[in-house]
């Protein structure tokens, strides 16, 4: 297998995903198959090929510096799991 349990755990941590007990072995197995599958890209000859990030060679359009958004906090916070006095709450962050 191209990936081992520790690598998968490292990736899961980077991605902030907790894998349930049963999920772990299956994830190692399936991710390894995916990685093996995409490994065939290494065969392609790509010297001097410009990487393609967008389907078009368009350039970024610029927006005028104007304020058009208005406050709609209460509406937006209806979806928030925990708020207090307009602040989104998370478990205390220690710096």
């Amino acid at each position: 297998m191209s990936l081992d349990k520790n690598q998968v755990q490292h990736i899961a941590t980077l991605a902030r995903l907790r894998l349930a007990e049963g999920e772990s072995a299956e994830t190692v197995e399936k991710l390894s198959r995916i990685v093996d599958f995409v490994d065939q890209l290494s065969q392609a000859a790509t010297d001097d090929v410009v990487p393609m990030a967008h389907p078009f060679n368009e350039t970024q359009r610029l927006r005028a510096d104007e304020v058009t958004e208005t406050d709609d906090r209460d509406h937006f916070q209806e979806n928030a799991p925990a708020v207090s006095d307009g602040l989104y709450l998370v478990p205390k962050v220690i710096e």
Binding site: L3, V8, I11, A12, L14, A15, R16, L17, R18, L19, A20, E23, E26, T27, K30, L31, I34, V35, V38
Partner: peptide, 18 residues
């Protein structure tokens, strides 16, 4: 994220992270 996403979504996030 572990609870909110299903198995395929998690696999793709992890593939992409990798």
């Amino acid at each position: 994220r572990g609870e909110g996403f299903g198995a395929e979504v998690k696999r793709r996030i992890m593939t992409g992270t990798y």
